[in-house]
Design a protein around this nucleic acid. Structure first.
Length: 947
RNA sequence: GGGCCGUUAGCUCAGUUGGCCAGAGCGCCUCCCUUACAAGGAGGAGGUCAUCCGUUCGAGCCGGAUACGGCCCACCA
């Protein structure tokens, strides 16, 4: 069976073709194979969810690059994988546990919960891999990795150990973002802000009586303007707050040192309402903005990042008091409020303040409140012990490689975000109070610190030839030994445990393991052949939202562990929004499921449309349509499906003809203008595709292919040669050119639409196994297109002359068709045409007479210079020619056409005349001036002919 | 508040270093179920390139400002 089915049905070909590739081991990479290395590591999708359109575009682009590289004969590897996504995944499973069994993680215990998450992972991880395969991904699935697999675990521990040894990991009390619901700290990057309507409460803090001996009558502070002298001093200070319950943890109030209203009070005290204790009035020019409100700020170091900074700046001057428990209740430091949840405490505090007359006013207020991305609850700044990575020594080299262009971003502007984020060098909090993740490889034992001066020392020890690192920290009344053990030595771990050391219960931030992805997936810390062959990787394709979280950290760890960059290029793909410009999400209900698109349009259509959309802008919109069954789709995918359908049908036509025609020797001298034109266009398209791909301009690659295949090959070349494919002198030549052109087009298109091109390729191989143009296009035969050679540009086949002449012929044909349409002549009836054309043009027209007659459905009778208009003829114009369609006169249509044309010409003439100023003639390039003059002359000539 | 991006045909987007009547797809109008394709073919309508100012012989493109929209970061108690 050599014929393609009459109808293009993607679902009928895609599974079989994918199997064909798998059976041929086409995705399998071998470091021992020849060829320059080319490698990509996938941005591992979170195991929490199914792939969405964002993944679809990201992976389509990676697959294009991978397939092109493979066709270019490079030794190509695309590493697939999945991210364990610590918080997100544990949250999902815990939620399920709660809903289905009404249990918490504590009911289950650590081991059982982790086991359950693994089960969950097996199920959903497979689904993601299946989705990648549906998409046509040619990743080497034998190398599929998971950020929590054994290899990664070793890489993580090795990296942690190295960092610890180098003194780059430390434990510190820090104000972290606390997710009360999940009971873990989260990084700044896992927070989104939401505008919340709340109140601004103005609370009176009485100034301590002892400090008021010099005051006069108790006037309101409002009565004091700037520079008013404090002969009359207020009895209290008013602070405004959106979180009145935190006043239980206030350890000071602050004023600006230059504020004449208050600077007299610095060093005195206020009485903290409700808890009835004295706290100092301090000066802090950074915290306090004199222009804002009363100029007095309450300071709650344990529950506000800014206040925490004050505490750090003024260490020793003020206390820090934590008033919350890890589940968001007031703790014992909150006196009578202990045990209340934060909302209840707020209510009670406000009531009590009101009762005591200390609430000056409450006004409505809108503010931004940080929420946890995972639990969607308001995060609490919370003081706790956390592990940190020192960023400065890691960030500096990572900045340098981007500054000096060793790593290049596409588009370039995205480097800015990378540079500015890394430039801040803020230490990275890496511990998470979770169970799902890489457990921190530190064993701790408290030590008696009462009689010792502060110590912070790092010692290396060797146990049975294995180096371990111990850090001893004694700070005031706390002391501990921290031991970090390298991977693979459970015996040593046991030994320390038997001595009373306990492993840290926390796990590492998910990004810690994904930061190692490029080298860890290739085998690090072992020096594997993969690592040697494919590190650094060629390009990272990702979205701009994780440039900081992920890209920057991969560069840091790559340089730190490998001493080399993880990738040469970073290609940022656009984010897909819905028609209203909003990000797609499940909760908004505007998401489009790629698998549903594959089911109704085919993977190739999905891929083609997404490739077209991969422009340089940061976002692209995809208008979403709701189907009656509730699913989302988009008309945008029509364009991909239509193109695939066109390719299918044109190929059917070509195959049907080629089956009848025996190949013959190439005779270039017999080639027509259309022959030379289509080959020239093919070469230009190869050039354009290469340029677009090396600039990661996937949209331009798609457009170049689309225009060539549909507009040039189908609309013009195939139509032009149809008569010649019948038995005759040119039959074998045009057949060879058609075969070669289709061959090359399939190669060009394959990376983008692999299924359909591979299907057609198979049939073409059966019908016409040899289809080059000897000495001009000499592709090596290949059973599978996925392994075929990428098209080569050959300048010998470009022809400006043929392109110029063919363009003129196209214009002429379009002009004749236009007359036919305007005069409503039936498509089947040829019209009679005479052309008045100057010598050169006339000769070309006569040489291509039958082409024009066929494509414009006409009969050419007279072609000569200065031909007078035949009687009763409709007229048209193309380039420097006048056309006459015999016996078509219809005075109304004719007048309309002529006056329209005249208007156009007059408008153009005015524009050109306006350009021809003295300065233009003097300053513009002479060729341009001449061009303008020529155009003007042509317009004048045509105008005179029209009058 | 700092930074980035966008504003071109009804919709979604191209427009490479400033220089041919500013392009594509979808939608719209007319005609055609022609022997590869109606998921198609032929032709057509539709744009003062957000606004203003500047540089230039010449600006969608370069510079400045404004307006509107989007995103990132930091956030005023």
């Amino acid at each position: 069976m050599t014929d393609l089915p009459k109808t293009y049905d993607p679902s009928a070909i895609e599974p079989a073709i994918y199997k064909l590739w798998l059976d041929a081991n086409a995705f399998r990479a071998n470091p021992a194979d020849p060829g320059q290395p080319y490698s990509i590591v996938i941005p591992p999708p979170n195991v929490t969810g199914a792939l969405h359109l964002g993944h679809a575009i990201n992976n389509t682009l990676q697959d294009i690059l991978t397939r092109v590289a493979r066709m270019r004969g490079m030794n190509t590897l695309w590493v697939p994988g999945i991210d364990h996504a610590g918080i997100a995944t544990q949250a999902v499973v815990e939620k399920q546990l709660k809903e289905k069994e009404n249990k918490t993680r504590h009911d289950l215990g650590r081991e059982a919960l982790v086991a359950r998450i693994w089960q969950w992972k097996e199920q959903y991880g497979d689904r993601i891999i299946e989705q990648l395969k549906r998409l046509g991904s040619s990743a080497d699935f034998s190398r599929t990795r998971f950020t929590l697999d054994e290899g990664l675990a070793r890489a993580v521990r090795q990296t942690f150990f190295k960092l610890f040894k180098d003194g780059l990991i430390y434990k510190g009390k820090r104000l972290v973002n606390w997710d009360i619901h999940l009971q873990t700290s989260i990084s700044d990057d896992e927070i989104y802000h939401e505008t919340v309507k709340t109140s601004l409460w103005h609370v009176k803090y009485p100034i301590a009586e002892d400090d008021l001996f010099s005051r006069g009558t108790g006037a309101s502070p409002v009565a004091h303007g700037r520079g008013a002298h404090a002969t009359v001093r207020p009895t209290h200070m008013v602070v405004a707050t959106t979180r009145p319950e935190t006043m239980l943890g206030d350890t000071a109030v602050a004023v600006h040192p230059d504020d004449p209203r208050w600077n007299w009070a610095i060093g005195k005290q206020v009485r903290l309402p409700l808890l009835n204790k004295l706290i100092p009035i301090i000066a802090d020019p950074i915290l306090v903005n004199m222009e804002f409100g009363s100029g007095v700020v309450k300071v709650t170091p344990a529950h506000d990042p800014n206040d925490y900074a004050v505490w750090q700046r003024q260490k020793g001057a003020i206390d820090i008091i934590n008033i919350l428990t890890s589940d968001g209740r007031i703790n014992e430091n909150g006196g009578p409020y202990a045990g209340l949840k934060r909302d209840a405490a707020r209510k009670k505090v406000v009531e009590d303040l009101t009762a005591q007359g200390l609430l000056e006013k409450e006004e409505p207020y809108e503010t931004q409140i940080g929420h946890s991305d995972r639990s969607k609850t308001a995060v609490e700044p919370y003081l706790s012990d956390q592990w940190f990575v020192k960023m400065a020594p890691l960030a500096e080299p990572a900045l340098e490689v981007v500054r000096n262009n060793k790593i290049k971003f596409f588009p370039e502007r995205h480097a800015q975000q990378y540079l500015s984020w890394l430039g801040e060098k803020r230490d990275w909090p890496i511990s998470r109070q979770l169970w799902w993740g890489h457990r921190i490889p530190i064993w701790t034992k408290e030590i008696d610190a009462s009689a010792t001066a502060p110590i912070d020392s790092l010692q290396s020890q060797t146990i049975r030839g294995i180096q371990i690192i111990m850090r001893t920290v004694i700070d005031g009344d706390h002391g501990a030994n921290y031991v970090c053990i390298p991977p693979g030595h459970p015996d040593i771990e046991k030994e320390f445990e038997s001595q009373g050391f306990i492993q840290d219960p926390d796990v590492l931030d998910t990004w810690f393991s994904s930061a190692l992805w490029p080298h860890s997936t290739l085998g690090w810390p072992d020096e594997t052949p993969d690592l040697k062959k494919w590190y650094p990787t060629s390009v990272l394709v990702t979205g701009r939202d994780i440039i900081t979280l992920w890209v920057a950290r991969m560069v840091m760890t790559g340089l730190y562990n490998m001493g080399d960059i993880p990738f040469h290029h970073v290609a940022i793909n656009p984010i897909i929004l819905d028609g209203k410009g909003e990000r797609m999400s499940k909760s908004k209900g505007n998401g489009v499921d790629p698998v549903e698109i594959i089911e109704s349009y085919g993977a190739d259509a999905l891929r083609f449309t997404l490739t077209q959309m991969a422009t340089e802008t940061q976002d692209v919109r995809l208008p979403v349509k709701k189907l009656p069954d509730g699913r989302n789709t988009s008309d945008k995918f029509d364009s991909g499906r239509n193109f695939a359908n066109k390719l299918w049908n044109a190929s059917r036509f070509a195959l049907a003809n080629l089956a009848e025609i025996a190949p013959a020797a190439i005779d270039e001298k017999s080639w027509s203008i259309p022959d030379r034109w289509i080959l020239s266009r093919l070469m230009r398209t190869i050039q354009e595709a290469d340029a677009a791909l090396s600039a990661y301009r996937f949209d331009l690659y798609a457009k170049a292919c689309y225009d060539f295949f549909w507009r040039d090959l189908c609309d013009w070349y195939i139509e032009a040669i149809k008569p010649e494919l019948k038995p005759g002198p040119r039959q074998s030549q045009v057949a060879s050119i058609l075969a070669a052109t289709l061959d090359q087009a399939l190669r060009l298109l394959h990376p983008m639409i692999p299924f359909i091109t591979e299907t057609i390729w198979g049939k073409l191989n059966e019908i016409r196994p040899i289809r080059g143009l000897e000495g001009r296009i000499d592709p090596a035969p290949s059973e599978l297109l996925i392994k075929a050679q990428w098209p080569q540009f050959n300048d010998d086949l470009t022809s400006e002359g043929a392109e110029h002449v063919f363009t003129q012929l196209q214009n002429l044909i379009i002009a004749i068709r236009n007359i036919r349409n305007e005069y409503k002549v039936d498509q089947k009836t040829p019209i009679t045409i005479s052309i008045s054309a100057p010598g050169d043009s006339g000769r070309q027209i006569l040489a291509n007479k039958s082409l024009i007659e066929n494509l414009a459905i006409c009969k050419l009778v007279d072609v000569s210079a200065d031909l007078p208009a035949p009687p009763n003829s409709a007229r048209g114009a193309a380039s420097n020619c006048d056309l006459y369609a015999h016996n078509l006169i219809d005075s109304a249509t004719q007048d309309q056409r002529l006056s329209k044309r005249r208007e156009e010409l007059i408008k153009q003439r005015a524009a050109l005349k306006g350009r021809m100023t003295e300065t233009y003639i003097a300053k513009a390039p002479p060729q341009l001036v001449k061009q303008t003059q020529d155009q003007l002359a042509e317009i004048e000539a045509e105008l005179s002919r029209l009058s």
